[in-house]
Amino acid sequence: MSITHHPSEATLFAHAAGGLPGALEAVVATHLCFCAACRAAVRVADGAGGALLEALAPAPLAEGALDAVLARLDQAPPAPALAPAPPAGVPWPRPLARLAHGRWRWLGPGMRAMRLGPPAARGGSLAMLRIAPGRAMPVHGHGGLELVCVLAGSFADESGTYRPGDVSEHDEEDRHQPVAGREADCICLSGTDAALRLSGLARLLQPLLGL
């Protein structure tokens, strides 16, 4: 599978640093499942993080810190939380396995959205979008950063055609209108760190849908 659209290096560094809001992190992690080139870039950025950690001036620990940890070594590590069942019929990348999800909701003609992650999250909003073949998505601008990773089908905008694994990255300066490919429903994961600025019908519905 060949990936032609990638997150910016700034976004990959932010991922490596652990500084991305959860909704954006989810999209980057999904892209990394598809993209060996970005996994290699992230290894490089992780390496920079390792080098920076090593170069930090050590902060003295409290008296007895080592003994406190040694005394806990034999305790079993906490078991990971049980994952909710993913919805049927939707590609569900592994990094999303622990995320709660809502139901498909009508967003407009030929458009449905499923909210992922906690309600009213501070980490932006994350949604799975399902767009009918050939359907144009609402024109929108961005209050912050928007990352969209295609999981099935395709969409196209001024910057090119996006196929499974491809990521589109837009910030506050951009406005765009993606159009779903004609071959099949386009299913994509969309994360933002701020509210999208939608125009038209979808703008009226935005508060109802919580997008």
Partner: peptide
């Protein structure tokens, strides 16, 4: 604080 539970080992 945003409580997004992602699975880093899923990559």
């Amino acid at each position: 604080r945003d409580r997004f539970l992602l699975d880093p080992d899923g990559i």
